[in-house]
Amino acid sequence: MHSHQTASDTIAGQVRKHRARLGLNRQQLADECARLGAVDLTYAAITNIETGRRNKEGKRRREVTVDELLVLGLALAVPPLLLVLPLGDEQIVPTVPAADPRDPYTVWKWCTGEETPTLAGPLDGRHYVDPRPIAGDGPKWSAAWGTAAYPASLYPEFERRREAVHRAYLRTETAQATRRTDKEGHSAAETDYLHRLEELARHINDMSRAGLTIPDLRPDLIEDMQGLDMLDDPDVINPRGTE
């Protein structure tokens, strides 16, 4: 614990790796960063990032900012999160200065809100969710984390349900063409579509209660949900392409 190894050290190694993967020298990477608007990521800056020069206390002279992480990821054609959490490439990565490093995929799930961080420990070989109240008498840390991370689970699920509705809708259109010869198939397609639509509507209601912005949807899907009284607030979403 209390190691001087930082996330910037991990990023430095990944920048070197992906720069070599693309066959870029440091000046070419600096040019790519400048093209993206990061003119401060010069040849000298990239050199300092990659070499990780230390001061007398052993700390890096040049850390990587969040803004720079985004630029470097785009310039190197790699998801920025993979620069700091290189899945399958490193066994452990730094977390916070007061805690032990952890495996990259564990920290990845913290960053995406899939799991609650477990920095306390290890006790009996295990890590534990922080049980303390924030600032001594505030909410439990784990509960506060769960509340803040809630949107991270809702938006991916919205995408899955929206896609399921879209596929079901296309099946109803196909079944419509054969309605006269396959009434049973048409009925099954309609039932599946309504079931998927209701699932999406329930999820939209959950997002609305959480105060989240609902992504745009096709007007016909919105009309169907509104017409079937599936939405708690019929005006909570806009048709795709409108304001």
Results as ranks from 00 to 15, higher is better:
155 Y>S: 04
85 L>N: 01
192 D>C: 06
63 E>F: 03
215 P>N: 12
229 D>H: 14
109 K>W: 02
60 R>N: 02
89 D>Y: 08
115 E>H: 04
83 L>T: 06
155 Y>Q: 05
242 T>V: 08
236 V>N: 01
94 P>A: 09
202 R>M: 06
219 P>Q: 14
213 T>H: 12
202 R>F: 03
48 N>I: 00
21 R>C: 02
29 L>I: 07
184 E>C: 00
174 T>W: 05
31 D>N: 15
203 H>L: 15
61 R>H: 06
3 S>A: 14
240 R>G: 06
69 L>M: 13
143 A>N: 07
59 K>D: 05
201 A>Y: 02
146 G>D: 10
13 G>L: 12
82 L>C: 05
221 L>G: 02
235 D>C: 04
231 L>V: 07
231 L>H: 07
70 L>I: 09
233 D>P: 02
89 D>G: 04
37 G>P: 08
168 A>F: 04
55 N>V: 05
51 T>C: 10
183 K>W: 04
104 P>N: 12
9 D>P: 03
146 G>W: 00
3 S>I: 04
81 L>H: 11
167 R>K: 12
136 G>K: 11
115 E>I: 04
164 A>P: 02
146 G>A: 14
213 T>G: 09
134 I>V: 15
243 E>H: 13
160 R>D: 10
85 L>G: 02
194 L>A: 11
75 A>H: 02
203 H>T: 06
109 K>F: 06
129 V>T: 08
74 L>M: 08
47 T>D: 15
235 D>L: 09
184 E>L: 13
221 L>I: 11
166 H>N: 11
165 V>F: 02
128 Y>M: 10
206 D>I: 10
81 L>Q: 12
110 W>G: 04
81 L>E: 12
121 G>H: 09
51 T>N: 15
14 Q>W: 08
85 L>F: 01
47 T>G: 15
148 A>N: 05
47 T>N: 15
13 G>D: 14
71 V>N: 00
169 Y>M: 07
34 A>K: 09
98 A>N: 09
186 H>Q: 13
95 T>N: 08
85 L>D: 04
110 W>F: 12
105 Y>R: 15
25 N>V: 09
96 V>M: 14
73 G>F: 03
78 V>A: 07
68 E>I: 00
61 R>E: 12
26 R>G: 11
202 R>C: 05
151 P>S: 08
138 G>C: 10
28 Q>G: 08
152 A>G: 03
115 E>Y: 07
1 M>V: 15
112 T>C: 10
201 A>T: 03
12 A>D: 08
238 N>Q: 13
122 P>L: 08
173 E>P: 00
214 I>P: 04
1 M>T: 14
166 H>P: 00
141 W>L: 13
97 P>V: 09
237 I>F: 00
37 G>E: 10
212 L>T: 03
200 L>A: 03
82 L>S: 11
93 V>G: 07
234 P>S: 12
175 A>P: 00
2 H>R: 15
185 G>T: 05
